[in-house]
Amino acid sequence: MHIKGKAWKFGDNVDTDVIIPARYLNTSDPVELARHCMEDINASFADEVQPGDIIVGGDNFGCGSSREHAPIAIKAAGVSCVIAKSFARIFYRNAINIGLPIFESSEAAEGINEDDQVEVILDKGCICNITTGCKYTAQEFPAFMQNLIAAGGLINYVKSKR
């Protein structure tokens, strides 16, 4: 599956408190969470993000709280995938569990600039920066996680095993 969108670039250690501040965690409604996505780090993000857009982060993306509301908010905002140098452990797990595509690639995270047009072949982890013409391949997922992703997340995976 191909996705295409504009890159929104962020730095290292983007924590889940800035992805979705706790003051909005009195709801678990994805639409409402999406309205405040990235609010404390880029106040205009939620208004301007377009379906298909891609978030590009640095090291340790999604660190801090275990709130699944963070990948839920990103997904509900229309973001098609997150590319980062590295992901914090719980965010990594949560994203796969809820079916938000994530890719680890230091080269892509460095080579993609804000507003670049980026195309990603999801099942292959091929990342193409259309603006610069550079191509990258994300780190491959272990076989077990590929099964989880193919099942559409953990809930479907558990259901299929029952």
Binding site: N94, N97, V158
Partner: peptide, 18 residues
Amino acid sequence: TGMGSTDMAAAMATGECW
């Protein structure tokens, strides 16, 4: 260790996690 809500849901049903 900390995990997310979906992992919690699966563990509540199965008593296991990966």
